[in-house]
Design a protein around this nucleic acid. Structure first.
Length: 260
DNA sequence: ATGGCTAAGGCACTTAGA
């Protein structure tokens, strides 16, 4: 079983690339972020034509998440619990019943939090607290659990090409990294770091200043898995070649393979 | 101090991203 996450930075600008990648990589479940589309105008047709079920949680202009899957989910939850006043579309979670197992997969678009000194940074940290609380409840259920998405957190200095350039950025603040660590420490595993300690392993390269050409990247797209899933973890791949395609997203897909 | 590019909304530019 293959489960992937990809911040596609606009579904309408990326629909052809998405379909090409789906055909090539053939994930069983794909989590998308930054679809930048409302549900009504999400281009589901070409995706469904490839045999995928589509669940979206969009909003106008920015944000927005989606779940694509070869098997339809038994149920879907939209929005992260804990704040009824939060209107940003950043969380969608599906439950699949496959081969007698219950598998829950979330597509997460964690707030960026920049610039520091505005309300955006406390919004990010508050959102992370809500995610930690929700993940705790989900872990207690002891189903297979995958929390995948654009976390907008650089976990460690090894996860950034030029750490000094990010010291004043919300993605690399001690508070952001601490909250991410507390989430992992609930009992989750960062799938990539469970399989490699390789350096210069990134998932995002800025459009500007030749960041891609210089491999001046950061690792902010993560798949956090429960113990039940970690036991079946076979491999993790960063689909780096996709960044070299025409009109790329600034993020690339990350995909895990699970046994059986 | 300084975001060099890109997407979306909507038709000139602004907002947002990271």
């Amino acid at each position: 079983m293959l489960i992937a996450t990809w911040n596609i930075n606009g579904i309408k600008a990326r629909i052809d690339s998405l379909c090409a990648w789906l055909e090539a990589a053939s994930p069983d479940i794909a989590c998308l972020q930054e679809i930048k589309s409302v549900d009504e105008t999400f281009p589901r047709g070409p995706i469904e034509a490839l045999g995928y079920h589509v669940e979206t949680h969009g909003q106008k202009g920015f944000n927005g998440v989606a779940l694509l899957s070869k098997v339809a989910p038994a149920s879907v939850m939209r929005g992260l619990p804990g704040d009824e006043s939060d209107e940003q579309s950043r969380y969608i979670e599906g439950l699949w019943e496959i081969g007698g197992r219950r598998l829950r997969v979330a597509s997460i678009y964690l707030p960026n939090g920049n610039p520091l000194g505005t309300e955006k940074f406390p919004y990010k940290l508050g959102w992370m607290e809500r995610l930690i609380a929700h993940a705790g409840w989900r872990l207690a259920e002891e189903d297979d659990l995958v929390l995948a998405g654009d976390y907008n957190v650089i976990p460690m200095p090894v996860d950034v090409a030029r750490p000094q350039a990010w010291l004043g950025d919300a993605l690399f603040q001690p508070e952001s990294r601490s909250a991410f660590r507390r989430l992992v420490n609930l009992g989750l595993t960062d799938a990539l770091r469970a399989t490699t300690d390789a350096e210069k392993t990134y998932t995002f390269w800025d459009y500007q200043a030749g960041a891609w050409q210089k491999n001046d990247g950061i690792r902010i797209d993560h798949l956090l898995v429960s113990p039940e899933v970690q036991d079946r973890l076979v491999s993790v791949g960063i689909e780096k070649h996709v960044r070299g395609w025409e009109k790329p997203s600034d993020h690339v897909p990350v995909m895990i393979q699970l046994a059986a």
